[in-house]
C-alpha cells in the first residue's frame, strides 16, 4: 500500500488547521510533485509508472482541497464527522438570505445601469468582502471544534457556497460586458 499520510494536512507535513500559509503549502506541493510526478518515472517499469500516477493524482487532490478556502472547510468538517451533503446544507439566517436576494437583483440590474462596469465592480467587491468574512468566521469556528461551533461552521460553509455561486454569476456578466467592448 502506498502510504500518503493520515490526511491531506499530514501529507504536506502540516498540522490540521483552517488557517494556513498558502505560499508554504504551494512550495511543499511543488516539492512533493518533484518526487512523485509520473514524469520522474518515464523510464521506469509500468508498475512504478502506475504508482506514480496514483500518488501524483492524490497529491493534486490534496493540494486542490487545501488551497481553496471552501473546499478546505468542507474537508475539515468531513474529518470531524460532520455531514456536509447538499440536501442538508441550508441556512436559516433570514437576514443573510434577504441580503442574497438583494444582491441577486442588483446583479440582474447591472446590464441596465448607467455605468455597468462600475456597478459590477462594486458588487463583486461586496461579495468578495462577504466571502472573506465567512473565511474569518470559519477560522474561529473550526479552531474551536465544539459541536456547536462545528454546526456554525457548517452554516458558514453553506453561506460561502451561496456567495461563491453569486460571484461566479458576476464573473459571467463581467465576461459578457467585456465581449461587448
Amino acid at each position: 500500500m502506498i502510504d500518503l499520510g493520515k490526511n491531506h494536512f499530514d501529507l504536506f507535513g502540516l498540522p490540521v488547521g483552517y488557517v494556513l500559509d498558502t505560499g508554504e503549502l504551494a512550495a511543499r506541493y511543488r516539492e512533493l510533485q518533484r518526487v512523485v510526478h509520473p514524469d520522474r518515472f518515464a523510464n521506469a517499469s509500468e508498475q512504478e509508472q502506475r504508482l506514480a500516477l496514483q500518488q501524483a493524482t492524490q497529491v493534486n487532490e490534496a493540494y486542490e482541497t487545501l488551497r481553496d478556502p471552501l473546499r478546505r472547510a468542507l474537508y475539515m468538517l468531513e474529518l470531524a464527522g460532520v455531514d456536509t451533503h447538499q440536501e442538508t446544507a441550508t441556512t436559516r439566517d433570514t437576514e443573510f438570505l434577504m441580503q442574497q436576494m438583494e444582491l441577486r437583483e442588483a446583479l440582474a440590474g447591472v446590464r441596465g445601469a448607467d455605468d455597468p462596469g462600475a456597478e459590477l465592480d462594486r458588487l463583486m467587491r461586496d461579495i468578495r468582502r462577504m466571502i472573506e468574512t465567512q473565511v474569518g468566521q470559519l477560522a474561529v469556528q473550526l479552531e474551536a471544534g465544539t459541536p456547536e461551533q462545528l454546526e456554525a461552521a457548517r452554516e458558514s460553509v453553506s453561506k460561502m457556497q451561496f456567495l461563491n455561486k453569486l460571484y461566479n454569476e458576476a464573473e459571467s456578466i463581467e465576461a459578457e460586458l467585456e465581449e461587448m467592448i
Binding site: M1, I2, D3, L4, L11, F12, G13, L14, P15, R28, E31, L32, R34, V35, V36, S45, E46, Q47, E48, L51, A52, Q55
Partner: peptide, 27 residues
Amino acid sequence: EKTCEFYVERRMNSNIRKAMAGHKVDE
C-alpha cells in the same frame, strides 16, 4: 515486477517521507 511490488512501494513511500522530512522536523 510482481516480486518487487512491495519494494517499489517502499521506495516510493521513502521518497515522499524524504521530501517532507525537513518540514516535519521544523513543525
